[in-house]
Simulated assay, not measured.
Amino acid sequence: MGFDVPADVLAFLDGASTLPRPRRRVVGPPPPPADPTPWEKIFGAPLTAEEWGVLTRLARRREVSAGEAVLDRLGIAQYLVLLLRGDVVLGSRAMDGDLRTERTLTGPAWLDLSSAWLGEPHAMEAQALSDVTVAELPLDALRLQLAAHTSLSERLCVCLAQQIGVLTGTSRNLLHNDASARFAQWLLQRCPPGESLTCEVRLQERKRDIAQQLAMTPETLSRLIRNLEQRGFISMQGYTVRIHDRSQLQRCAGATR
Rank of each mutant, 00 (worst) to 15 (best):
Q145M: 15
L175K: 09
L142M: 10
V158F: 11
G169H: 11
L188G: 03
A161Q: 11
Q185M: 12
V166G: 07
G194Y: 12
Q163G: 14
L142K: 02
A184N: 00
D178G: 15
Q163H: 10
Q185F: 06
P138N: 10
Q145N: 10
L146V: 09
H176T: 11
D140S: 14
A141S: 14
Q185S: 14
L188Y: 08
L187Q: 02
C159F: 01
D178Q: 13
S153M: 09
L175N: 10
P138Q: 13
D178F: 05
Q145C: 11
A147N: 04
D178I: 04
A184M: 01
T170G: 07
Q145G: 02
D178A: 12
H149M: 08
T170C: 06
R155D: 02
V158M: 13
Q162H: 12
L187M: 13
G194S: 10
S180M: 07
G165V: 01
Q145R: 12
H149T: 13
S153W: 00
F183H: 05
L187C: 07
P192K: 10
T168R: 15
G194N: 09
Q162D: 14
S151A: 15
L152Y: 03
R143S: 12
A181S: 14
N177V: 03
S151V: 04
H149I: 11
S153E: 01
D140W: 06
H176P: 00
A148Y: 07
C159I: 02
L160N: 08
H176R: 11
L167V: 01
P193Y: 04
N173I: 10
C157D: 08
A184P: 01
T150D: 12
H176D: 01
T168A: 15
R190M: 03
E136W: 04
W186F: 15
E154C: 02
R190E: 04
V166R: 15
C159S: 15
A179S: 14
S153L: 14
R143F: 12
E136I: 02
R182A: 02
E136D: 08
L146Y: 01
L187P: 03
L144P: 00
R172A: 13
P193H: 08
L137H: 06
E136A: 14
P138L: 09
G165D: 11
H149V: 13
L152C: 08
E136Y: 03
P138D: 10
S151K: 08
N173L: 15
G194V: 10
R182D: 03
Q162F: 03
N177C: 15
R190W: 05
R143H: 12
C157N: 09
L146H: 05
S171N: 13
H176G: 03
R172N: 10
I164Y: 15
L142Y: 03
L152A: 07
V158R: 15
A147V: 13
F183S: 00
C159K: 10
L144G: 03
S180N: 07
C191Y: 03
C191K: 10
A179H: 07
A181R: 06
T150W: 11
I164E: 12
A181P: 06
A147T: 04
L144Q: 13
G194Q: 07
